[in-house]
């Protein structure tokens, strides 16, 4: 059942991406994309029921949240700001993460360690996942716009930064909330809100990277290459925080190793 829902989601998002690229009847593409989101949400609900805990512990589980959130945000923000720039990148990102998860599911473990049994667990992870989705999408659109200009041999324009910037204005406040929820939770669980654990350090670096983007955009609004470049670097730091930190020499000292499958 889980695999069927996953394939429905992947199929819907792939079809929606094709329909968006074809640029006819975009409302129908929205509908197909939302069928995929619905299938993905059902998959998460079934996982929650079968595991007996929120499916937010392993990297594979958080990847599913991401795979569902990105197309959902792509459609919602597209409606809100009347733009189709997000449509194809958001669908393709959803497909990419879902396919990766079908290959490496990593959501088999039903146990949840005592430190994760907290009322903060769900809001902390959900807020982070929505933030990651918005920020990932902003970088994807930045890269998409940049690649488009390169192919057409045109210089970057200021309007190329518009949608990525709007996405950061949504993603960064959520990232801030996720970081602060984590600090409040850590105080309850371990007695200190900040210990410079490797995962915390990388969360701080991700936050700083996007703060710097925001300040650079404020100071240099007429330099699209600088701001789009900062966004792409920011996403690199974000991915290092999410996945890469587990492979660094500092990983052995982290108390956040529960994101790895056992």
């Amino acid at each position: 059942m889980n695999a069927t829902l996953a394939y429905v989601a992947v199929g819907s998002w792939t079809l929606a991406a094709g329909m968006y690229a074809w640029r006819r009847r975009p409302w129908m593409a929205d509908l197909v994309a939302m069928i995929g989101v619905f299938a993905g949400a059902m998959l998460l609900g079934l996982l929650w029921a079968s595991l007996g805990r929120p499916p937010m512990r392993t990297l594979g589980e958080t990847r599913w949240w991401y795979a569902v959130c990105v197309p959902l945000l792509g459609v919602l923000i597209g409606w809100r700001f009347q733009t189709r720039v997000l449509a194809v990148p958001s669908m393709l990102m959803g497909v990419m993460f879902a396919l990766f998860n079908l290959r490496h599911p990593e959501y088999m473990d039903r146990t949840l360690m005592p430190a994760l049994q907290s009322p903060w667990f769900v809001p902390h992870v959900v807020v982070y996942m929505v933030a990651y989705s918005a920020l990932g999408l902003s970088s994807a659109v930045a890269a998409w716009n940049w690649a488009g200009r390169l192919i057409r041999r045109q210089p970057l324009q200021i309007e190329d930064t518009d949608v990525p910037h709007r996405l950061v204005l949504i993603g960064l406040p959520l990232l801030t909330c996720g970081l602060l929820f984590g600090a409040l939770w850590a105080k309850e669980a371990w007695g200190h809100y900040w210990t410079w654990d490797p995962k915390e350090t990388w969360a701080f670096l991700t936050w700083m990277a996007y703060l710097m983007y925001l300040h650079l955009r404020q100071k240099h609004p007429l330099k699209p290459a600088l701001t789009l470049g900062a966004l792409i670097v920011g996403f690199g730091v974000l991915m290092a925080c999410w996945f890469g930190v587990n492979y660094l020499p500092t990983a052995q000292e982290s108390v956040h190793t529960y994101t790895q499958p056992e």
């Binding site: 410079w196 490797p198 350090t201 990388w202 701080f204 670096l205 700083m208 990277a209 703060l211 710097m212 300040h215 930190v245 660094l248 020499p249 500092t250 052995q252 000292e253």
Partner: peptide, 17 residues
């Protein structure tokens, strides 16, 4: 902020030991 970030990067890669 860049300087603090770079110093934090070193702390985020090199183990405390």
């Amino acid at each position: 902020c860049t300087a603090v970030g770079l110093l934090a990067l070193a702390g985020g890669i090199v183990p405390a030991s």
